[in-house]
């Protein structure tokens, strides 16, 4: 492979969105009200669509004949490069929306930066995904306000969700050789810069939602190099079972 750094980076971008989109799709038919069922499914569709674009490009860069489907359905969990934040089970609606918000607030500045990537194919995908992701952020922000500043129960659930999710956000500032190499080439942004946008955005919305931003230590994370929670294995087992049961088949 000529460009393992770019390949690895694209897997991260694709896997985040594939795993998160898959989690959101689990809500289909079970949402708190019909309109929100439709809304969450829209999010899922957009995210899986973005994932498909990133993973397709990853396959091209890898140059081993793998397409997005091959990467999505035939890798084991240690080969996935998504954040743990994305793979956590949905929990209740507060947990799902809080996780979505924390991701969207990261994804928007990230995609904005990627539209300026020196790798034009990546910049093009980022531009396509950015519009929809801005809408996602609008949607999840509005829900964080309604949950945080709604009823006592919704406030409690939102705060609990935030308290549980916050320690996973340490994964957002993860940097390794891949990031440094791509930054040097002008292909990817510095995660630390994105983090300051993210902090500003999240603080503003969480405060408006009357929620307390947690202050504790971050959890050890390893998703970016294939060391996941126990949840991913179960999720992939379900996601991949039909494809893997029929090797070589077309669908």
């Amino acid at each position: 492979m000529t460009d393992p750094a770019l390949f690895g980076y694209l897997l991260r971008l694709g896997d985040d969105r594939l795993v998160l989109g898959h989690r959101l799709s689990e809500w289909c038919g079970h949402g708190p009200i019909l309109e929100e069922d439709i809304a969450m499914t829209n999010l899922a569709l957009d995210l899986i669509g973005h994932a498909t674009m990133f993973l397709s490009l990853a396959g091209e860069v890898e140059g081993a004949g793998q397409d997005a489907d091959a990467l999505a359905y035939w890798r084991d969990e240690h080969a996935f490069r998504n954040l743990e934040l994305c793979e956590l089970p949905n929990g209740d609606f507060a947990f799902t929306m809080m996780r979505q918000f924390l991701f969207d607030a990261w994804s928007v500045p990230l995609l904005e930066a990627l539209t300026r990537s020196a790798e034009p194919r990546l910049a093009a995908i980022a531009a396509k995904a950015l519009k929809e992701t801005r809408y996602h952020l609008r949607h999840s922000s509005e829900w964080i306000c309604r949950l945080g500043d709604g009823t006592e129960e919704s406030h409690r659930r939102a705060q609990e969700a935030l308290d549980e999710l916050w320690p996973w956000t340490g994964g957002l500032e993860y940097q390794d050789e891949t990031d440094r190499a791509l930054q040097a080439r002008g292909i990817a942004p510095n995660p630390a810069e994105l983090l300051s946008s993210w902090r500003g955005l999240t603080r503003e919305v969480l405060t408006r939602a009357t929620l307390l931003v947690p202050d504790g230590p971050m959890r050890m994370t390893g998703g970016r190099f294939g060391r996941h929670t126990e949840h991913l294995g179960h999720m992939l087992a379900e996601m991949q079972i039909v494809a893997r049961s029929h090797p070589g088949a077309e669908w």
């Binding site: 009200i33 929100e36 609606f93 309604r146 949950l147 919704s154």
Partner: peptide
């Protein structure tokens, strides 16, 4: 399970 969500939005 959606009751509290609907209530929250209405309260807000």
């Amino acid at each position: 399970e959606g009751q509290w969500v609907r209530d929250a939005a209405a309260a807000y």
